[in-house]
């Protein structure tokens, strides 16, 4: 061994066996100012439940900052600190480094403490990507970077981000009289990118709050495995996606069942499709057409049949042409892709 990575012990976080065996305690509680049916708020709740009381949470600017913690008001039971929009990686690294050195020097009681830094898609996939990438290359700091992806800068006024799906209506991509599709970029493949680009990172996964137990166990694995890890959650957003809040859970399921949001984990370099995605890939269940997903959301209300077909073709491509379905966009062969005419 040329170099030795000094791992500090992590908490023993075995998977929760079933929803009936979940701890009742909440470490992220009521009284946040998020939207009705906010899946990101649900993610915060389940993340805190999965991590438990000996946890420090760092939150970068976004909905989960502005709405959860408005001065003199908080929903956090565990210690929580704001970090800057692009700083989730740095916040996790700095906090983990402090705990490591203070415990080593005997300046702090020696015990494994979970360090979780969350960011939205704007803070993570856009502004914070270099800091997150750097943190994922530091093998000896135990921390989890959790990206809650509601596919826009939903707090600021629903402007498009690098994670907004093709064609979606945002305040920076509003359809007009001449241009129907103002957003021509395809969503960044953040989890795949983090996994492919950081060989020392032991755990990367994608989750959905519609599969809460699976999501909590994935986060527990990410916290227990040691070193920096990355978890990417797709969170339906009734505000920016424009749907009735009671549909949040269903739309999360649709994202997975239509193949738009593949669930997978890469653990110690081993790729594993998980949950419904695994069943779709194994041919046990059929992928639903994406229109079932798109037509439930006001942000796609301007779509024509061609737009929906194009969206479908890109998803099909992801499943049939990508080297690993939905994970890494290296194709078996290069094929032209043509967007519908304006």
């Amino acid at each position: 061994m040329a170099t030795v990575v000094k791992h500090d012990p992590t908490q023993a976080l075995d998977p929760f066996k079933s929803v009936k065996k979940l701890p009742l305690e909440e470490y992220f509680t009521s009284g946040h100012r998020t939207c009705q049916g906010c899946e990101s708020a649900l993610l915060m709740k389940l993340m805190a439940k999965a991590a438990g009381p000996r946890t420090i949470v760092l939150g970068s600017t976004g909905c989960m900052y502005v709405a959860n913690t408005t001065y003199y008001s908080t929903s956090w039971v565990v210690p929580w600190m704001h970090t800057q929009l692009g700083s989730s990686g740095s916040a996790a690294l700095g906090t983990a480094a402090a705990l490591k050195v203070l415990m080593r020097k005997g300046k702090m009681k020696n015990e494994p403490i979970n360090v979780i830094a969350f960011c939205g898609d704007g803070g993570g996939a856009d502004m914070g990507i270099s800091g997150i990438s750097a943190t994922l290359t530091h093998p000896d700091y135990n921390c989890l970077i959790l990206m809650y992806d509601n596919e826009s800068y939903a707090n600021t006024d629903i402007q498009l981000s690098g994670s907004t799906p093709w064609g979606a209506n945002t305040t920076f991509s509003t359809p007009g009289k001449v241009k129907r599709i103002m957003h021509h970029r395809w969503k960044k493949n953040m989890a795949g990118m983090m996994a492919a680009g950081h060989p020392e990172c032991k755990y990367v996964s994608t989750i959905s709050m519609s599969y809460g137990l699976h999501a909590m166990n994935s986060m527990r694995k990410a916290l227990a495995i040691g070193g920096p890890t990355f978890v990417h959650s797709l969170d339906p957003c009734p505000k920016g996606w424009d749907y009735d809040p009671y549909l949040s859970h269903e739309i999360g399921e649709l994202a997975v069942n239509t193949g738009v949001w593949p669930l997978y984990e890469i653990e110690n370099g081993v790729l594993r499709l998980t949950g419904r995605t695994q069943q779709i890939a194994a041919g046990k269940i059929r992928r639903q057409p994406v229109r079932d997903y798109l037509t439930k959301q006001g942000r796609f209300a301007h779509f024509t049949a061609d737009d929906t077909d194009y969206f479908q073709s890109k998803i099909d491509e992801m499943w049939t042409k990508w080297l690993y379905p939905g994970v890494i966009p290296f194709r078996k062969e290069i094929e032209a892709d043509s967007a519908p005419a304006e």
Partner: peptide, 20 residues
């Protein structure tokens, strides 16, 4: 060794908040 000054200062900011 950070990947830029913004991270460089944010990392120690958070380390200090945690008691370092």
């Amino acid at each position: 060794v950070a990947e830029g000054e913004h991270s460089q200062f944010e990392i120690v900011k958070h380390a200090s908040a945690a008691g370092a």
